[in-house]
């Protein structure tokens, strides 16, 4: 008993109380900002070096759905046009909002429909499907339930059965071998239900986009409610995305 109390005291108060305003370390790469500057003549270094072809030129645009947040583009740009800030509020509700251009200084999801907020605003149970995820995203989703992030305090939890869930969270590019299981799992979730894509692989295929062993039909034919970009996204990006979307501020 004494030992238990000792451990509890050591535990202290580890929870992130204010999930909205956490100061991230300087080297963390969150939302990129694009300076309103002209590229050097004919320069295409950032687009050429990007491992997932996330960058378009004239004008410079970064697709966060593809971006794996490696700092290569920032490193090669001679004009310092691209800079990754440590803003971790990067979740959005439409695919187009993930395209970052020079006008965009911050992004967040629009609040969900009144119906969705009424159904899920106080309690949201999610079933996670790992469909080719490397376990990076899975670890970050697991971290949501630890004592630091404690997502349960917002009424958001992961459940074991799709029958008990209000929606699914997909990680990974959806491999051929997981395509059918993903469909079956989604079907088993009662209506109304939502789909959240977690990480670059789920959103766009990411670094595995060119693989002939992946199957993206499920993503193309279903409406996606929330996109959480990153490789892997930070747990706080997920929490903030969901509470913004459900308007739980």
């Amino acid at each position: 008993m004494n030992d238990a109390i000792k451990i509890r005291i050591l535990q202290g108060d580890p929870i992130v109380h204010d999930v909205r305003n956490v100061k991230f370390p300087e080297r963390y790469r969150g939302l990129p900002l694009i300076q309103d500057k002209v590229c050097a003549n004919g320069c295409s270094k950032c687009a050429d070096i990007c491992p997932t072809n996330a960058i378009k030129l004239n004008p410079v645009q970064i697709d966060l759905g593809l971006c794996v947040f490696c700092p290569l583009c920032e490193e090669v740009c001679p004009e310092k046009i691209i800079h990754f800030t440590n803003d971790y509020h990067t979740a959005v509700d439409t695919r187009e909002s993930l395209i970052i251009s020079k006008e965009i200084k911050s992004i967040s999801p629009e609040a969900a429909s009144e119906k969705i907020r009424k159904y899920f605003g106080k309690s949201l149970k999610l079933r996670q499907i790992s469909a080719g995820g490397c376990n990076g995203c899975e670890l970050e989703l697991n971290a949501l339930s630890n004592v630091n992030f404690d997502m349960g305090r917002y009424g958001i939890e992961f459940v074991a059965s799709p029958r008990h869930a209000d929606g699914i969270v997909i990680t990974g590019p959806i491999t051929n071998n997981m395509a059918k299981a993903t469909e079956i799992c989604y079907e088993a979730v009662p209506n109304p239900k939502i789909i959240i894509l977690f990480g670059a692989c789920a959103i766009s295929g990411g670094i595995f986009k060119e693989s002939n062993k992946i199957q993206r039909d499920f993503i193309e034919k279903n409406k996606i409610d929330l996109f959480i970009p990153g490789c892997p996204p930070h747990p706080l990006t997920f929490i903030n995305g969901v509470i913004d979307w459900l308007d739980k501020k």
Partner: peptide, 18 residues
């Protein structure tokens, strides 16, 4: 095999940054 994304093949086809 459910996670098979054919990483080995992709590495052969990829450029060094990828």
């Amino acid at each position: 095999g459910y996670q098979h994304r054919s990483v080995e093949k992709l590495i052969l086809e990829a450029n060094p940054n990828q």
